[in-house]
Design a protein around this nucleic acid. Sequence first.
DNA 1: GGGCTGACCTACT
DNA 2: CAGTAGGCCAGCC
Length: 118
Amino acid sequence: MSLDRETLKAIWKVVSEIPPGYVLAYGEVATLAGYPKGARMVSRALGAAPKAMRLPWHRVINAQGKIAFPKDSAGWKKQRDLLEREGIQFLKGRVDLQRYGWKGVVDQLIWGDEMPLA
DNA sequence: GGGCTGACCTACT
DNA sequence: CAGTAGGCCAGCC
């Protein structure tokens, strides 16, 4: 499989569907786009996204709830700023996926558990 | 083709 | 919770 136009489109679509204030892990984006093992392709797809489409790339983080960039890089600070601007709080340098994870929210809605978010 | 790299992930120590 | 190891897959020598 390669990053052809269709693949990129599928990944970009998933990312663009993430509502403000929520995040999704690379692996989950890959799965929803139809590539369960394609987590690494997602990172490439994000980097290949045209700046003009204003893709919410900052809502994509790794499965550990952490930003994928080195914490001392410019990209790291920028992503964190964008996320906090949407109301996402960082605890110990990490995002609480149970609370801000988009898929997690869907699951909670389905299973109807006690969910902390409004 | 062969080998290395990476905005990754899971499992184990 | 931090580090390590193995697995994955596409891109670039």
